[in-house]
Computed example of a mutant assay.
Amino acid sequence: MPLTAYYSAGTATLTNGSVNVTFQAPADMTTANVAPGDRIEADDGRTATLATVGPGPLVATLDKAFKGTTQAAQPYKIWRTFDAQYLMEGARNAMTLLGSGSIAALAALAGAANQGMYFTGPGVLAAFSLTAAGRVLLAGADVAAQRATLNAVNKAGDTMTGPLRNTGLPMCRVTRNNSAETFVVNTEYALLGSFNLNQGGFTAGAATAPAGSGNRLKVPVTGYYFIAMGIYTTVGGGGRLNVIVNGNPINVMAFGTSAVAGQKTYGFGVVLLNAGDELSYYCNIAGAQVFTASNHTDVTVIYLG
């Protein structure tokens, strides 16, 4: 079969002043591999450049309105653009891309497993750790999907299922671990003999008299604290037992009174404490005769924020 530099099967219709071209069978632009940029020659010799080919095998458009004489279903020729021209244009575009800062930054980036990349500035890329769990989160189609991945509550008013436990929230419950004691008026006493509960970093502070009776209680972080104390009275009389900060009897955090023998009274307070502040007992009204063993006289301290 002879080779030709053009394609001319069937006929073509071109209209003066229009960009539309239609072909008549057996013309088939698809199997002929006609492409934008090829030149079409009308029967009168006038030429034009194809802008699009298709959709379908019998339709094309010109890059400009046809200036030749209208022809209906007349012979034509399509002169193919040499592949070398396409290759040169593609090479030119590739060189332009390779010369951009973004491509150069990508080439300079040393990637590794489980890493992503991001721009830190124009034409500057950096890598970051991107774990499998992180990729699952990023794959969420929207915020709702990502929230479901995290098992997160949406906002105020939503329903939480299952327990919520903050194991890092500072809270403790302490006792002196003694038996019946008489606290002398205007005297500081240890708050901490032992912990019944401790999480979030409470520690023993300075030791207090009498020797061996225990220590002050040191708070771990700055913030508001809820303090609750319970006093189990062995002998009634109205003695008052305070919880004070840093040994200062004026800074009363909470207090309770030993009013009725055989009963437990309670005192509460919400106070602002600094990290490192130390809490202790202080008896300032009469002598308080109490039973300081566990579950009788104790203090609970909870960090509120």
Rank of each mutant, 00 (worst) to 15 (best):
L130I: 04
T159N: 11
E41G: 02
T15S: 08
T297Y: 00
F291W: 11
A107H: 10
T297G: 01
L241E: 01
I285T: 14
L97R: 14
L273Q: 06
Q199E: 12
L125I: 09
M229F: 10
C283K: 01
A180H: 12
V174K: 00
N242T: 06
T233E: 01
F202I: 04
N215M: 08
A141G: 12
Q115I: 03
Q85F: 14
N196V: 12
L106M: 12
P122C: 08
L50D: 00
G37C: 04
G239V: 05
K155I: 10
A25F: 05
A112P: 05
T61P: 03
A228N: 12
L241I: 08
A5H: 13
T11G: 01
T233Q: 00
T131Q: 07
P249T: 06
G17E: 08
G236Q: 03
T149F: 15
T22N: 10
G214M: 05
I40N: 00
G168R: 13
L125N: 08
N114H: 12
G214N: 03
T69K: 14
T234E: 04
L62K: 03
G238D: 09
N16I: 02
N166W: 08
S179V: 12
V252I: 15
C172Q: 04
W79T: 05
S280E: 02
L97E: 15
E89R: 13
A204P: 04
I40K: 03
A275I: 10
A132N: 13
G17H: 09
N242L: 04
V124S: 13
N246S: 08
T149P: 06
A32H: 08
Q85V: 15
N166R: 10
T11L: 01
G200K: 03
T96I: 15
G101C: 10
A48K: 05
G238Y: 09
G17Q: 12
L98T: 11
I250W: 11
P210T: 11
T297D: 09
G269M: 03
Q263L: 10
G247L: 04
T30L: 14
D28F: 05
G121Y: 08
G121Q: 11
D83L: 14
A141I: 11
F195Y: 14
I227T: 11
E278H: 00
F23E: 09
A139M: 10
T131D: 11
V245C: 07
L279N: 00
Y189K: 03
K264W: 03
A60I: 06
A209W: 04
Q24W: 07
T120F: 12
I244W: 06
V252M: 10
L192A: 01
T233W: 02
D298S: 10
I40W: 05
V219W: 05
A288Y: 02
Y224A: 14
Y6M: 07
T81P: 05
L273T: 06
R165E: 15
G205Y: 04
A180G: 15
L97C: 14
Y86N: 11
L109W: 04
D83E: 15
T292F: 02
M229P: 01
F255W: 13
A32N: 01
V221A: 11
A144E: 14
T297P: 06
G162H: 10
L164K: 14
Y224E: 15
L164C: 11
G247F: 00
Y232F: 14
Q199Y: 05
D142V: 03
G201D: 04
L87W: 14
T13Q: 04
R135A: 12
N196W: 09
N248R: 01
A25K: 07
V252A: 03
M229S: 00
A48E: 09
G262T: 06
T31G: 05
V299N: 02
